[in-house]
Design a protein around this nucleic acid. Structure first.
Lengths: 254, 254
DNA sequence: CTTTATTTTGCGTTATCATGCAGTATTGAT
DNA sequence: ATCAATACTGCATGATAACGCAAAATAAAG
């Protein structure tokens, strides 16, 4: 257990830390300092870097494995400000009496929370989490599209979901995305997700993509749709931000 | 049950507390103090933080599960033990590879929590809350029946739900009920609920009614089905309890 | 092989956080 | 109304973190 180490390079320390975390689900800065024979400052800097790139979760006193299993109710705790900003803007697109379709994810959940109490509208969603949040608003009609619950994404997927989506028609669809790029348009890395998104797009008169700025200009494996399909692009940036300029066209930047 | 823990990070304590609450529906600050080896002050501060972010409901002496805080009931913490007992017994009816259909409500939720991690089975449910809880179990396939989310009961209802239910066939259906009586059988007070329950019964080879003993011998306005339809009656009482004697017949008392 | 630039690291300082304790207030049950 | 259990407040203490800077190590260039 006691690993003696001398003159390790930063990369090696990082690897060591990741290994320790995978092994124990947690590490203490103080322990690492001793094991790696470096100051705790260095350890803390290492942990910061690893946390920055999303490999671990840094907490006071050390760090936790990212797969640290939290019960579902708190998976969404870390809704970053950028997501909140996107959600806030998205709400502006919804007007009285509208029929809206949404996916899942933290940004959508945040949007559900921000729906004003006096809005009367009809929502369809594939996300039970979003549905439950929307159900808090007294004037909304909330329809949950059924299907097989995907454990990671916590949204319904599969054949049933897609066939049910083909039976509805809505005014506006809010979609999150991991990949958005000028040339490739909207892309995704999971095939199942791709199918569902395509079905959602077909079901909707207008499409709004919600996307935090750090995901701009990234391409994933498979294409969902081209940019021309998108009616609104909602980001945390100002609509006049130069980074968004290339996306102007058919798409309204919000 | 006495879990020994040393040098836990705050986040770990939080996760531990959430797990305990999910397990028992309630925690006492005093217990947590001992289990986590910290002062009750620290426990209380932890509980405050968790309550602050809406993950639990803090009460005098400890905290309660949030999803336990269903719109309808919440009176006494200890009456819930009977539901737990019903849920525990219900689990016994589920065997490997089975296809199961469930409704919503606290007893169902409790059952979902108690499903063993190593059970491989397929679940259908009309409750997003139950679905999300079931999704925590790695080996389960969870299918959520769509529909219009009823804000009070937090289950899907309406025409879509009923037509979807008509398309499936399962081995066993777990139903809660407010009214059960020798002569009238299973009764309910809401028309919408009635329709859904009937559809669930039609979809299932066998029917299990889950019912805490205080609801025995009560009649509601509308009839769901007669007692002869019921295969299992699960209560918090011993199967040999004289109160249950009258219900013996086609129905197996558990 | 120097010399120079860049990065990394450790240390002192200051700020922040976490925790337990003592005293006081509040609660809930009888 | 009383009493014991539970909660909250403020504070002291030790732990951890952040900041800035200078020494050391590493890489790059001449």
């Amino acid at each position: 257990m006691n690993i003696i180490t001398t003159g390790m390079l930063k990369k090696e320390r990082h690897a060591f830390i990741i290994r320790q975390i995978n092994l124990h689900n947690k590490v203490l800065s103080s322990d690492l300092g001793l094991q790696l024979q470096v100051s705790e400052d260095t350890v803390r800097r290492d942990l910061n870097e690893l946390a920055e790139s999303g490999k671990i979760i840094k907490v006071h006193g050390g760090a936790l494995s990212k797969s640290f299993h939290f019960p579902y109710e708190q998976k969404d705790v870390y809704a970053q400000d950028s997501k909140k900003e996107v959600a806030r803007k998205a709400i502006g697109l919804i007007s009285e009496g509208m029929t809206v379709l949404t996916g899942g994810g933290t940004t959508m959940l945040e949007m559900a929370r921000l729906v004003p109490d006096d809005l009367e509208a009809t929502f369809f969603t594939i996300s039970p989490v979003v549905a439950l949040e929307l159900a808090e608003k007294k004037l909304l009609t909330v329809n949950l599209i059924g299907g097989t619950l995907n454990k990671n994404a916590q949204v319904n997927m599969g054949a049933k979901t897609i066939s049910d989506l083909s039976e509805i028609g809505v005014d506006l669809c809010f979609l999150g995305t991991n990949g958005i790029d000028l040339k490739e348009g909207i892309t995704d890395s999971e095939w199942e997700v791709l199918q569902v998104k395509k079905a959602m797009i077909k079901a909707s008169a207008r499409i709004a993509i919600m996307c935090i700025s750090e995901k701009l200009n990234s391409v994933k494996k498979m294409k969902v749709c081209s940019l021309s399909t998108i009616d609104y692009l909602i980001t945390d940036l100002s609509p006049t931000d130069p980074k968004l300029r290339p996306y102007e066209g058919n798409t309204k930047i919000i």
